[in-house]
Design a protein around this nucleic acid. Structure first.
Lengths: 140, 140
DNA sequence: CTAAACGCTCTAGTTAACTAGAGAAGCTAG
DNA sequence: CTAGCTTCTCTAGTTAACTAGAGCGTTTAG
């Protein structure tokens, strides 16, 4: 039973993913997408998982990962088998980094909430520990 | 009672913040740092809260905010009073964005954990919903 | 069968965020 | 008072991640 999902042209991918054609070509050039196959005329044919690859790329990117970092992860995925120890270490590091980032985001959120309620006016006697930019009430 | 905290030269700031002198000047040029004062000779003098401003900048930046977004927040901070409604809306939007990002980070973390345990080898009958890049077990 | 839409390559431009170097002037320890 | 470090401005270069345009070939709807 062959699951014959039709490979698609770049335009279709662009439309569904809301990512410009040029960007998709650029990603392919960097090796983030595999479009080994081409039509006779030379048009790129993308495999069906391209959309999910793109959404992974965009998510990872919005979280501050560089395209080359993202490529490393996609390469691991593409290899398909368990990563070797070296790569495992890298993955674990990245996961730890993400935990860090989760904490930082919480802090930033508190800081912005602080700005919302105008806590710059808080007195010197109750320093806002969660809010490093608001440590000194300068204009007092 | 005047809290006379001495303003500092750029080199001192650079050393304490671990941010290069050139970068600090660049930030000042963009209006992220206020160094209104200068020595007679023209050397920049930075107020004492500069270090905490820099650490705010770096945190926000590592979370994907652009320097111009960061400037907006610092400007709100500098105005010192409660933000106007327009700005409140912006802040609330950013906070919502951060909540989004917190979720995305959780997803990414799960995806990386998935890669670690090599879940590409999981059968087609149990699709990994949390792991969009691992929806198709292509090499099967 | 042909026009419009789509896709290709190649070259080059853009933006954000730095980063480097030159040349001159300010500050400071001995 | 001067050697040597710090800082200044100005100009220009770099990297990542696109983005635009020219000029030309491919596909497909009527």
């Amino acid at each position: 039973m062959l699951v014959q999902e039709t490979p698609r042209l770049i335009g279709a991918i662009a439309k569904e993913s809301h990512i410009p054609v040029k960007t998709i070509r650029y990603y392919e050039e960097l090796g983030l997408l595999q479009s080994t196959r081409r039509t006779e005329g030379g048009f790129r044919l993308f495999p069906p998982d391209t959309i999910s690859r793109l959404s992974f790329i965009k998510r990872a990117q919005s979280l501050g990962l560089s395209l080359s970092e993202i490529k490393e992860f996609l390469d691991i995925y593409d290899r398909g088998n368990l990563p070797c120890d070296h790569v495992k270490v890298k993955l674990n590091n990245k996961i730890a980094e993400i935990d860090q980032q989760l904490q930082q985001l919480q802090i930033l959120k508190q800081e912005l909430i602080g700005l919302l309620s105008g806590s710059t006016t808080v007195s010197k006697t109750s320093p806002q520990l969660i809010c490093p930019i608001i440590q000194h009430t300068i204009k007092a």
